[in-house]
Design a protein around this nucleic acid. Structure first.
Lengths: 123, 123
DNA sequence: TATCTGTTATATATTTAGTATAACAAACAT
DNA sequence: ATGTTTGTTATACTAAATATATAACAGATA
């Protein structure tokens, strides 16, 4: 796997896992229908506890990025609720952009960065 | 003050405080040079502990939004390090936009929301 | 002098995060 | 059939983060 955990980060391990898997889907390093490692395997691989991986997978399932199946394990399966996703994005973005605005970053500069990041994603 | 704490949120109180004060600056409800309430006063006002407010103020100071003065108290004073601010924004934005991309939100739609939010700010 | 600032210190309770074992039922390969 | 692998659940524990409660200090101020 491409996952890299920073154990010195102040961000919780399970959140780092969630974010990196979502980023992996966006950059199509992980594709719809593809299997993730089992909770035990990934935990072993990273060197963390099974339950920490399980927590990440459960959240990703609840947020509509995975389906968990006893036979096949964790499978990428995007459930799209665009309206909800947009509202969540707006709420998260509000504080990120407030910081930017206070630091004299313009709307144009912010949108340039949005372009930049979208170019990292699959076309 | 305009601060509203959601005690049922999973977000820490001191973080809610930081975010709302930054948003307050961006929307010019708080202006450069203006005084914030003292840590004791704001704590009393919201109904939380003095140290929780103090933690928020200390972080805002360290991130360059406030100066703390024994005589005048906490004063809005923006320290602009644009390059650093841009890099931080990019890192925070990356995972917000990865989520959006997975949910079929387009680059244009994301930029529309950036416009929308910037319109909430002072001109 | 009394009061208000931020600041620091100590102690404590609560919650969250992470680990450690263990067990279960469903699926599956041999 | 047997043994293994899947997610899932339960319990117990440690450590860290969060929030509260008092208390005290030095500098500034009225």
């Amino acid at each position: 796997m491409f996952v890299e955990i920073d154990f010195n980060s102040d961000e919780a391990i399970y959140l780092q896992l969630c974010n990196q898997i979502i980023y992996g889907i966006a950059t199509s390093q992980l594709q719809e229908g593809e299997n993730l490692p089992s909770v035990r395997e990934l935990a072993e691989n990273i060197g963390i506890n099974m339950h920490t991986v399980n927590k990440a997978y459960s959240i990703l399932k609840q947020e509509g990025y995975l389906k968990l199946d006893r036979r096949k394990g964790a499978v990428i399966a995007i459930d799209i609720n665009k309206l909800q996703a947009k509202n969540e994005m707006r709420d998260e973005m509000r504080y990120v952009l407030a910081k930017a605005f206070c630091k004299n970053i313009s709307c144009e500069e912010a949108k340039d960065i949005v372009n930049e990041i979208f170019n990292e994603f699959a076309k």
